[in-house]
Amino acid sequence: ESFERTINIAKGNSSLGMTVSANKDGLGMIVRSIIHGGAISRDGRIAIGDCILSINEESTISVTNAQARAMLRRHSLIGPDIKITYVP
Rank of each mutant, 00 (worst) to 15 (best):
residue 3 F to E: 09
residue 38 G to V: 02
residue 49 G to W: 02
residue 73 R to M: 10
residue 82 I to F: 08
residue 35 I to H: 15
residue 24 K to E: 12
residue 21 S to C: 10
residue 11 K to H: 12
residue 88 P to V: 02
residue 83 K to D: 05
residue 70 A to Y: 08
residue 87 V to G: 01
residue 27 L to K: 15
residue 39 A to Q: 05
residue 46 I to A: 01
residue 11 K to S: 10
residue 40 I to R: 00
residue 69 R to W: 09
residue 77 L to N: 15
residue 5 R to L: 08
residue 73 R to S: 12
residue 19 T to A: 08
residue 71 M to T: 09
residue 46 I to G: 01
residue 31 V to A: 02
residue 2 S to H: 12
residue 36 H to Q: 14
residue 8 N to F: 12
residue 24 K to N: 11
residue 35 I to M: 13
residue 10 A to M: 10
residue 19 T to F: 08
residue 87 V to N: 05
residue 8 N to D: 09
residue 62 S to T: 11
residue 9 I to F: 04
residue 48 I to E: 12
residue 19 T to M: 09
residue 18 M to T: 03
residue 78 I to E: 14
residue 11 K to P: 06
residue 24 K to L: 09
residue 66 A to E: 15
residue 47 A to S: 14
residue 9 I to W: 02
residue 80 P to V: 10
residue 61 I to S: 12
residue 29 M to G: 02
residue 45 R to H: 05
residue 74 R to H: 09
residue 13 N to D: 13
residue 50 D to F: 02
residue 15 S to E: 15
residue 44 G to L: 02
residue 51 C to T: 14
residue 69 R to V: 12
residue 47 A to N: 14
residue 64 T to Q: 01
residue 39 A to I: 06
residue 48 I to P: 13
residue 43 D to T: 01
residue 72 L to D: 04
residue 22 A to H: 08
residue 32 R to G: 07
residue 38 G to W: 03
residue 61 I to E: 12
residue 31 V to G: 01
residue 45 R to W: 02
residue 27 L to W: 11
residue 37 G to D: 10
residue 64 T to G: 08
residue 87 V to Y: 08
residue 29 M to V: 15
residue 88 P to A: 08
residue 25 D to S: 13
residue 18 M to P: 04
residue 10 A to C: 13
residue 19 T to H: 13
residue 77 L to V: 12
residue 19 T to I: 12
residue 87 V to T: 10
residue 50 D to N: 02
residue 79 G to Y: 10
residue 37 G to I: 03
residue 46 I to V: 07
residue 35 I to A: 15
residue 41 S to P: 02
residue 68 A to H: 00
residue 6 T to P: 03
residue 81 D to A: 09
residue 28 G to A: 00
residue 83 K to G: 04
residue 29 M to F: 07
residue 32 R to M: 10
residue 25 D to H: 13
residue 36 H to M: 09
residue 32 R to Q: 14
residue 21 S to P: 00
residue 76 S to P: 04
residue 74 R to S: 08
residue 43 D to L: 01
residue 52 I to G: 00
residue 20 V to S: 01
residue 43 D to R: 01
residue 63 V to C: 13
residue 55 I to S: 02
residue 18 M to V: 09
residue 41 S to N: 11
residue 65 N to T: 14
residue 85 T to F: 04
residue 4 E to M: 11
residue 7 I to T: 02
residue 88 P to R: 10
residue 86 Y to R: 01
residue 70 A to S: 14
residue 24 K to T: 12
residue 10 A to F: 11
residue 54 S to I: 04
residue 3 F to L: 12
residue 76 S to R: 07
residue 63 V to D: 05
residue 82 I to T: 12
residue 23 N to K: 11
residue 20 V to Q: 04
residue 34 I to T: 02
residue 72 L to W: 04
residue 19 T to P: 01
residue 22 A to Q: 13
residue 66 A to Q: 12
residue 52 I to P: 01
residue 15 S to L: 11
residue 77 L to C: 14
residue 24 K to Q: 12
residue 76 S to G: 10
residue 79 G to F: 06
residue 53 L to T: 15
residue 38 G to L: 06
residue 37 G to T: 06
residue 52 I to H: 01
residue 51 C to P: 02
residue 2 S to V: 10
residue 40 I to P: 01
residue 39 A to Y: 04
residue 17 G to D: 03
residue 27 L to R: 15
residue 78 I to Y: 13
residue 8 N to W: 14
residue 31 V to N: 03
residue 67 Q to K: 08
residue 86 Y to Q: 01
residue 20 V to F: 07
residue 45 R to I: 00
residue 55 I to M: 08
residue 47 A to K: 14
residue 8 N to P: 03
residue 4 E to D: 07
residue 63 V to E: 05
residue 76 S to M: 08
residue 20 V to R: 00
residue 30 I to W: 04
residue 42 R to M: 11
residue 2 S to A: 09
residue 85 T to Q: 07
residue 34 I to A: 00
residue 9 I to Q: 01
residue 31 V to C: 04
residue 86 Y to N: 03
residue 52 I to K: 01
residue 27 L to A: 15
residue 74 R to P: 05
residue 17 G to K: 03
residue 4 E to T: 13
residue 30 I to R: 09
residue 27 L to S: 15
residue 16 L to V: 07
residue 22 A to Y: 05
residue 1 E to K: 10
residue 51 C to Q: 13
residue 72 L to C: 06
residue 34 I to F: 03
residue 28 G to F: 03
residue 53 L to G: 00
residue 7 I to F: 04
residue 25 D to K: 14
residue 74 R to I: 06
residue 80 P to M: 10
residue 11 K to G: 10
residue 79 G to N: 09
residue 38 G to A: 06
residue 34 I to W: 04
residue 24 K to F: 07
residue 46 I to F: 03
residue 17 G to Y: 00
residue 85 T to W: 02
residue 37 G to L: 03
residue 78 I to V: 12
residue 23 N to T: 07
residue 67 Q to Y: 08
residue 40 I to L: 04
residue 49 G to Y: 01
residue 16 L to Q: 02
residue 4 E to R: 11
residue 36 H to D: 15
residue 50 D to P: 00
residue 36 H to I: 09
residue 72 L to N: 03
residue 33 S to Y: 06
residue 60 T to E: 01
residue 20 V to P: 00
residue 79 G to K: 09
residue 42 R to I: 09
residue 32 R to S: 13
residue 51 C to I: 13
residue 54 S to R: 14
residue 33 S to R: 12
residue 14 S to Y: 13
residue 3 F to T: 09
residue 83 K to M: 06
residue 60 T to D: 03
residue 5 R to P: 01
residue 70 A to C: 09
residue 47 A to T: 12
residue 28 G to D: 00
residue 34 I to V: 09
residue 43 D to Q: 03
residue 12 G to M: 07
residue 54 S to L: 06
residue 75 H to N: 09
residue 57 E to L: 05
residue 67 Q to D: 10
residue 9 I to H: 02
residue 87 V to R: 14
residue 28 G to E: 00
residue 65 N to H: 07
residue 54 S to H: 05
residue 21 S to Y: 10
residue 12 G to N: 10
residue 57 E to C: 08
